[in-house]
């Protein structure tokens, strides 16, 4: 088996401690949460941090709770916990849809929500789900904390706005009435990364879409979102034709690249097809027609 290069190791017992360690080591350090993205990359020696700062001991970053009209998810929450959380599922079906198809059950036991987001793989599922839900991320740094929109969290492939001395601590999702959501992914096999995937949330007033959120992953969508399609939907009646048109707009605005998972034209087609389908699911759920 391939093995990581030599590395130093520090264990952080609290957020403050982690920040102190990050300040001490600077860009040579990497935060180690579940490690299920980082350790394989270290084994393949695609990344070679000098120091790992293990935050698994910060158990108070492991939570899912309702605070006012927000669902708050601690960054160290394991994927399996999010999948099992009834409060998350009740308000955000999209999260359970997505978690069910992220990696596999064993990886989900240990991999963390924050770790997945910070890995910032352009094919990451939760990035699209949180983009669709228009969530925000709480980032702690030496000067306190800041809140960043999910759509500003990523700075590019494998890059986020979390600075070298900062730590992602929480994800917040606003709960608004009248909403429904869903997630649909096409992959070559269970546990594989998506060839393309779409998440959607809609809020209805009667049949009229008051707001919509569309997240796309693996298809080169800016900020994992389909803003133009959302704009199109706002104020329109939720008919199959409208949803299909939104799918087309989403597809027109993404920039997929060909790889072994699929050619660019297929991925663009998927962006349309899956957006349309998942909007249908979100609408059905908003109307209470679907679990």
């Amino acid at each position: 088996m391939q093995v990581p290069a030599q590395v130093e190791y520090e264990r952080a017992g609290s957020v403050e401690h982690a920040l102190t360690l990050l300040a001490r080591y600077g860009p040579a350090a990497r935060v180690l949460a579940g490690g299920h993205s980082l350790i394989p990359m270290m084994k393949l020696r695609l990344v070679q941090p000098e120091v790992l700062i293990d935050i698994n001991g910060i158990t108070d970053l492991c939570y899912i709770n309702l605070t006012g009209a927000q669902l708050r998810i601690g960054a160290l929450t394991r994927h399996a916990q999010l999948l099992e959380s009834s409060v998350a599922g009740e308000h955000f079906a999209i999260l359970h849809d997505a978690e069910r198809v992220i990696a596999d059950p064993i990886v989900r036991n240990w991999g963390t929500v924050g770790g997945s987001l910070c890995q910032a793989d352009p094919s990451e599922d939760l990035s699209a789900a949180f983009a669709a839900m228009k969530g925000t991320m709480i980032i702690h740094g030496p000067d306190g904390s800041r809140e960043v929109s999910a759509r500003e969290f990523h700075a590019g492939p494998y890059e986020t706005v979390v600075g070298p001395s900062e730590l992602l601590t929480e994800i917040r999702l606003p709960i608004r009435p009248g909403g429904g959501s869903g997630y649909r992914k096409v992959s070559r096999r269970a546990g594989d990364w998506p060839v393309g995937a779409a998440g959607a949330a809609v809020w209805l007033d009667g049949d009229v879409i008051t707001d919509a959120g569309i997240g796309l992953t693996a298809v080169g969508a800016t900020h994992f979102a389909a803003a133009e399609a959302e704009d199109f939907l706002r104020g329109r009646t939720a008919t199959p034709q409208t949803l299909a048109r939104a799918g087309e707009i989403a597809a027109e605005n993404c920039r997929p690249v060909s790889d072994q998972r699929g050619p660019a034209d297929y991925k663009r087609h998927l962006a349309c097809e899956l957006t349309t389908r998942v909007l249908g699911v979100a609408v059905a759920r908003a109307r209470g027609l679907m679990a």
């Binding site: 088996m1 391939q2 190791y9 180690l32 490690g35 299920h36 350790i39 394989p40 084994k43 393949l44 790992l52 293990d54 698994n56 399996a80 596999d104 064993i106 990886v107 036991n109 240990w110 546990g191």
Partner: peptide, 27 residues
């Protein structure tokens, strides 16, 4: 494998199975 895909290495860490190729011993 090298990429956490095969599960030949699964053991329990406390009360849940994990891929022990993707966990450092110090963890």
């Amino acid at each position: 494998c090298d990429t956490s895909n095969c599960g030949a290495c699964v053991v329990w860490l406390d009360d849940t199975p994990v891929k022990s190729c993707t966990v450092l011993a110090v963890m």
